[in-house]
Design a protein around this nucleic acid. Sequence first.
DNA 1: TCGTTTTTCAACACGGTGTCGAGAAAACTC
DNA 2: GAGTTTTCTCGACACCGTGTTGAAAAACGA
Lengths: 230, 230
Amino acid sequence: MTSITDDGGYSGRMPASGSRRGPTKGDQRERALIDAARTVLRKKPLAQVTIDELAAAAGIARSGFYFYFESKQALLAALCETVLGESEQELAEWVESDGLDREALRRGLARSLKRWQIDGRWLCEAFVNPFPGPEIVEIRERVTANGCTAITRRVERDIRAGVTVVGDPTLLALMVVKLRLTMFAHAFTSPDEQTDDDLLDSLTDATLRLLYGTVPTGPTAIGEPLPATV
Amino acid sequence: MTSITDDGGYSGRMPASGSRRGPTKGDQRERALIDAARTVLRKKPLAQVTIDELAAAAGIARSGFYFYFESKQALLAALCETVLGESEQELAEWVESDGLDREALRRGLARSLKRWQIDGRWLCEAFVNPFPGPEIVEIRERVTANGCTAITRRVERDIRAGVTVVGDPTLLALMVVKLRLTMFAHAFTSPDEQTDDDLLDSLTDATLRLLYGTVPTGPTAIGEPLPATV
DNA sequence: TCGTTTTTCAACACGGTGTCGAGAAAACTC
DNA sequence: GAGTTTTCTCGACACCGTGTTGAAAAACGA
């Protein structure tokens, strides 16, 4: 970590900017490394990427890499941080919508799918790989927890609005989050098994069905309870 | 596996038995390696296990390992083969049952959960890890496909019996299989987040809800259609 | 400009992987 | 059970990726 206060845990160095002035050369290099990782990790799994390769792609020597990051995993963690907000935004529209806005949910899933189709390889590496090392686990848990609480809050609002939800909301939310992840991962690794539309339809229905026990045909206004299922 | 014509692709050697006589010393060593792997891989992820460690646990020198397996991954693949049948048995009771036998499903899930609690670490490694190498991918795809076709057949039988199923049965089956896997993996890595019973209840309901759109309270006889959901 | 801080990298030590080939042990034949 | 063949064992080697260190270059601030 080598930080005086707290650097978020992923970088081996303190970004010099924050005082004034434009990005220092170090900041630029750090960004270059993250960008390099993003590109390189689209093509091969982390285990097959050497630090040499990442450093070269960023224009520095291998040993220079360690000035910026402690390991490949730390770099991947930093890469994840950069897209952390995006995934929450994708859920946001639906989570904040009123009623069981099927279309909003589908749009969010479609955006996520698009992201996974581009960066699926390293997203898998970070969010599906069971033991990716401590740095990444930390981030993953944060992201998963955020997704779960967002959905849980949404569901609790629905309950207050009179919609019947069967089962423990926390576990339901977890299943929804996990199902999204695996299915996106599956779509990345086996892209030809189904069309995007089929996948999105199935995933949209599945989400609603998991949470509410049934699939509404059109938008349902708040306060208009769904048919309850035991 | 261990057949004369085809070794399944995981072993670097032709098992000597098949002619006559009991297991040769080689066969014993091979078993010893698989057993050693089973034990060692309960404690650490594959990446942190050295071939030296596996060989030592089986009582041979490191270089001797390569007589039996091409790599750690190949050994893990062999280990997976040994439990391949179990996972199908766990599903079998429910798949072959009549009606939407909720209890049979739950029993099957409970058996799987138990297995995952013991061998979760390497099961994750093989069935959750996105890029575990070709040997393991081959096995995983076989297992997943088997699970999917079993469920698909089950669902198609239900449809013929008059039960309403919403959505593409193939994708539904895939989601059910994937959801099981991630949730078991989650239960292994975060065992204290929920009780086994809660997890099993949720997973049972989720499965039925994904497939049939609703959760029956008691056993439902074939031919007695569930309430249809759009 | 000078002193300080940041950045770079060659050289090194280490540990795991995979190969090779000679020789030991086991299995089989008669 | 002696002779032959096959199976098995393991030390020695070459290779590659990792992570560290220390000294020097570049950038920065006054």
